[in-house]
């Protein structure tokens, strides 16, 4: 593989644990994936499965009582796990941006939007105030904010929740970063506005080669946006592969259950297919496979934690009894 083809971000066996009074919560426990230039990875999973903590780990934002206890995060070959706080500050917002679940994590309530956006631009490149304002204005327009000139002079509270989220997205797009981690950024938005934002994000990926990690619990959005998909459950990736292969031929019983329960996959008015039970607490994981108590394919083997197995076309599954294994070839390495 030549250097230019190496991925923008490569996460290898990442472990981020929280050392709480009640015990150790292994929020991210041996997660590996990579995203290449201009590619989109969809990271899906239930609440508490470790999606946000994975994003925070990449940005160097994990706080006490949490700590990265193992693995590597290679950004263009540089291991961020051992990078200094200064180096991380340098990268954040310029090379790597995060769009947070809560937009007020990005926005400062006491500063006008223009002040915040111009500062964000001038912090990392020498650009005149007028040019910076012009760029800020353009980016606000791109995320569907009407009369951007007027809006630049507003404070965050003068926007509705959805508009604040769009401003936060605009700030993440400002410096055309190499990597964006977007944490459920469009969940609260109407699908037409969501479409507008996905359009801009897609354009950025294809024109500037930005790599994107899109965190969501909405499989339908991932279907339309992502190249690859990682499904997380209780701190581990249980299935990954290309969007087409995973959504058309899910091999992990959890992924299969998720896809079957999407309303459009079910006949109108008929009960939805449902996964019984609920996700376990990280402090009280079941013995063996974490999905075991909810799984219809449970067997004796499932009393031990399944390893990742590799299948054709780069697919990886963590299950003792993968579905359709007869039709998808297993690769041994």
């Amino acid at each position: 593989m030549s250097l230019s083809e190496s991925p923008t971000i490569e996460v290898k066996d990442l472990k981020t644990y929280f050392f709480t009074k009640g015990g150790i919560a292994r929020a991210v426990d041996g997660v590996s994936f990579s995203v290449g230039r201009g590619k989109v990875l969809g990271l899906v999973g239930e609440s508490g499965s470790g999606k946000t903590v994975t994003g925070f780990s990449i940005l160097g934002l994990v706080d006490e009582p949490g700590r990265i206890v193992g693995g590597e995060i290679l950004y263009r070959g540089e291991n961020l796990v051992s990078a200094s706080p200064d180096r991380m500050r340098e990268l954040r917002g310029v090379n790597i941006s995060m769009i947070f679940q809560d937009p007020m994590m990005t926005l400062n309530p006491v500063l006008r939007i223009d002040t915040q956006m111009i500062e964000a631009l001038q912090a990392h490149e020498s650009i005149s105030k007028d040019d910076a304002r012009q760029r800020a204005r353009d980016v606000l327009g791109q995320v569907g904010i009407a009369s951007p000139d007027e809006r630049l002079r507003s404070y965050p509270h003068q926007f509705s929740g959805g508009m604040r989220q769009r401003v936060a997205i605009a700030i993440a797009l400002l410096n055309k970063p190499d990597l964006i981690v977007a944490d459920e950024p469009t969940t609260a938005l109407d699908v037409t506005i969501q479409g507008q934002i996905l359009y801009e994000v897609q354009k950025l990926c294809s024109q500037t080669g930005t790599a994107l990690i899109w965190i969501t619990h909405d499989l339908s959005v991932v279907a339309g946006l992502a190249d690859d998909i990682c499904v997380m459950y209780a701190g581990r990736i249980v299935e990954q592969g290309s969007v087409n292969s995973v959504l058309d031929k899910p091999m992990h019983p959890y992924t299969d259950g998720l896809i079957s329960s999407v309303p459009s996959r079910n006949k109108r008015g008929v009960p939805l297919a449902q996964i019984p039970g609920m996700a376990p607490s990280l402090l009280k994981l079941p013995k063996g496979c974490s999905f075991g108590p909810r799984c219809a394919h449970f067997s004796n083997a499932c009393d031990s934690i399944p390893d990742i197995s590799n299948y054709e076309n780069g697919r990886q599954i963590r299950c003792h009894n993968p579905l359709g294994a007869g039709t998808t070839l297993r690769v041994t390495d």
Partner: peptide, 27 residues
């Protein structure tokens, strides 16, 4: 019509998203 055209569906893969035309008003 605009709403339904944008509904994400499991069956629609790697689609081309389209920008909203015109400006988005405030209540």
């Amino acid at each position: 019509q605009a709403l339904l055209a944008e509904v994400p569906r499991l069956e629609t893969r790697q689609r081309k998203f389209a920008p909203v035309k015109g400006e988005i008003p405030s209540p």
